[in-house]
Design a protein around this nucleic acid. Structure first.
Length: 220
DNA sequence: ATTTGATCATGT
DNA sequence: ACATGATCAAAT
């Protein structure tokens, strides 16, 4: 699938996918559908990336570098409520002295997002899950402010060696949670006395209450 | 070992 | 019922 050259082209392709099931799309692209996503958690996201012509793969780049667009699938229930928090990016745990919000990965990744809702209740077989209507989002000033506030608070805790005090509840819209192969994985971090230590890798996630607001803004 | 794509599953 | 903490696979 060739990468879209313009935003309009991307949105047209996205609209063309609405209403199809994952099974139908997988068949068109020649993919087998897993029975469940337990051992294939990123399957739907990667299928949609391919369908829309994303190029980045696992590189630390936006999905559509030329357009500056990040693609995020958003699993929802039949009432349009998000089923999961949304992973944004890994959290840097060292070498983060006085980084500015505007320069952060979180800010850059969320500057322009193509949200693609997916009716994905666990009771629905993977193959029958329905692709929804994608919509483009840029944080408004209020959203930007909430994100920046949470980010600054979390990054300060990390920089001051407070990473082990941080749990998922520590933010209004943005949270820090483990992002690792398992709970024994380790990466470099800053200890309580400012010394180098090893800690569980973390990532930034958007809370479901936040993404639900985005859906409400887009669809009422 | 890290970042991408996330969802699973247990505790509250 | 829900969020937090835990986990899985592919690409690099």
């Amino acid at each position: 699938m060739k990468t879209p050259q313009t935003l309009d082209e991307l949105m047209q392709r996205c609209r063309a996918l609405a209403g199809f099931t994952l099974g139908q799309l997988a068949a068109e692209l020649g993919h087998a559908v897993p029975v469940h996503l337990k051992q294939d958690k990123g399957w739907a996201g990667q299928l949609l990336e391919q369908a829309l012509g994303a190029t980045a793969g696992s590189k630390a780049e936006p999905d559509f570098p030329e357009l500056g667009v990040e693609l995020k699938t958003l699993p929802i229930d039949q009432h349009g409520k998000p089923l999961e928090s949304t992973y944004v990016c890994v959290a840097p745990l060292t070498g983060i002295n006085q980084q500015l919000w505007q320069d952060s990965w979180v800010c850059q990744k969320l500057s322009l997002v193509l949200w693609l809702p997916l009716l994905a209740e666990r009771s629905i077989p993977v193959s029958d899950r329905v692709i929804g209507t994608g919509f483009l989002w840029q944080p408004d000033s209020k959203e930007q402010q909430l994100l920046q506030q949470d980010w600054e608070e979390l990054m300060e805790l990390i920089a001051l060696g407070g990473i082990d005090q941080i749990r998922g509840a520590h933010g209004q819209v943005l949270q820090l949670r483990p992002k690792a192969a398992n709970s024994r994985a380790l990466t470099a971090a800053i200890g309580e006395a400012g010394q180098p230590v090893q800690a569980l890798p973390r990532g930034f996630y958007l809370k479901t209450s936040f993404t639900q607001q985005l859906l409400r803004k887009a669809f009422g």
